[in-house]
Simulated assay, not measured.
Amino acid sequence: MHKSIRAVIYARISLDRHDEAGVERQEELCRRLAAAHDAEITDVFIDNSISAYAGGHRPAYERLKAAIAGGRVDRVYVYASDRIARRVRDLIDYLDVCTPGGVTTHTVTGEVLDPASSSGRFLTTIMGAVAEQESALKGERVRAARRQAAERGVRRVHRRSFGFTAGMEHVDAEAQAIRDGIDGILAGQSLSAIARDWTERGLTTVRGGAHTRGSVREILMRPSVAGLSSYLPTRPDGSKLRADREIVAEGQWEPIVDRDQWERAQTILSNPARRHPGVGGAEVHSPLAGLVICTCGDTMYRRTRKSHRADAPRRAFYSCRRSVPGRQHVTIGNELEALVAATVLAHLEQPDATDTLAAALAPGDAAADLIVERRDLLQRRADLEEEMVA
Rank of each mutant, 00 (worst) to 15 (best):
R12G: 06
D16P: 04
H18N: 10
G22S: 14
D38L: 09
I41H: 08
I41M: 06
I41S: 05
T42F: 00
D43E: 15
I50H: 04
I50C: 05
A54E: 14
G55Q: 08
E62Q: 12
R63K: 10
Y77R: 03
A85Y: 07
Y94K: 02
V97M: 02
V97Y: 07
P100F: 00
H106P: 03
T107L: 02
V112R: 08
L113G: 12
P115E: 01
P115G: 02
S118T: 10
S118C: 05
L123Q: 12
G128L: 05
G128F: 07
A129T: 06
G139A: 09
R141T: 14
R143C: 11
R152A: 07
R156M: 13
F162R: 15
F162N: 14
F164A: 03
A166R: 11
H170M: 04
V171H: 08
E174A: 10
G184E: 05
G184S: 11
I185Q: 03
G188A: 05
I194P: 12
T199L: 15
E200I: 07
R201E: 09
T205K: 04
R217T: 02
L220V: 03
V225G: 07
A226S: 07
S229I: 04
T234A: 08
L241P: 14
L241H: 15
A243D: 13
E246G: 12
P255M: 00
R264A: 12
R264N: 05
L269Q: 06
R275Y: 12
H276T: 13
A282L: 01
V284N: 02
S286R: 09
L288F: 02
C296N: 08
S307Y: 13
H308P: 13
A312H: 15
R315S: 04
R321T: 15
S323L: 02
I332H: 03
E335Y: 06
L336N: 04
L339V: 12
T343I: 05
A353I: 05
D355V: 15
L361F: 14
A362M: 10
V389L: 09
